[in-house]
Amino acid sequence: MDLDVSGEVAVVTGAGRNIGRSISTLFASEGAKVIVVDIDRERATETVDMIEADGGEARAQTIDVTDEGQVRKMVEYTEDEFGPIDILVNNAAVKESSEFLEMSTNAFNRTVEVNLRGTFLCTREVSKSMQKSGRGSIVNFSSTSGHRGEKYSVAYATTKAGILNFTRSVAKALADDGIRVNTITPTRTGKTTLSDSNVDVESRHSDDVEDDQIRDMIPMGRLGTPDDIATATLYLASPLSQFITGAELQVNGGRLA
């Protein structure tokens, strides 16, 4: 047994860049058929082009994960194209950035909607597809700030803590269907690329910490790369982790140690 996902159908959200793109291209290169979900058509298409250029199979789906109807249609489209879904990676997220006292209600709401409602909707709808084959693996994304808090991104940090318990709860709800649900907890993979966002709610706070400062907090002495996160995601998606559910996998160079 190995990290084999060949022939499996994978849906990856926020797949137009960075971590989501890395996951999509890795899964496709390992033989999975990938649905590249992103709110930005150009970015999604670019990821699909990269996969196809490498000989892999993928389709783009430009949807807003907070929209129930669009999520349903995405699942229908996936089943029509590739069949029942085996793997879901809930990577789409937004990160607001502001002084807490200046944070707008809209920014708070939008962050909660994308990070929690989006994850909820995709999980609920995709699980129905997974039930058909009696197995599946769902990987959700938390963050180091889901453990430690983050003063300029209070809403983001709050939703990322929520993801940990969403994972535990849904793992219980779906265990009898043979569906495993786990969390990956990455840390920043580079400021310039805003790793885990696919929509910027507000411009980033001007005093936000630089990459160098983050690097100093990481025992391994380097920021993560999207590939570091992608290989860990592949592990949780593959049968190699068949006895893991409701768990967290921290991939952050020891930042939470």
């Binding site: 219980k172 265990a175 025992p219 570091d228 996160i229 893991i244 768990a247 921290q250 952050n252 930042r255």
Partner: peptide
Amino acid sequence: YITGHALVVDGG
């Protein structure tokens, strides 16, 4: 890139 982590492998 994984270090300092306690990976739970317990079937939930």
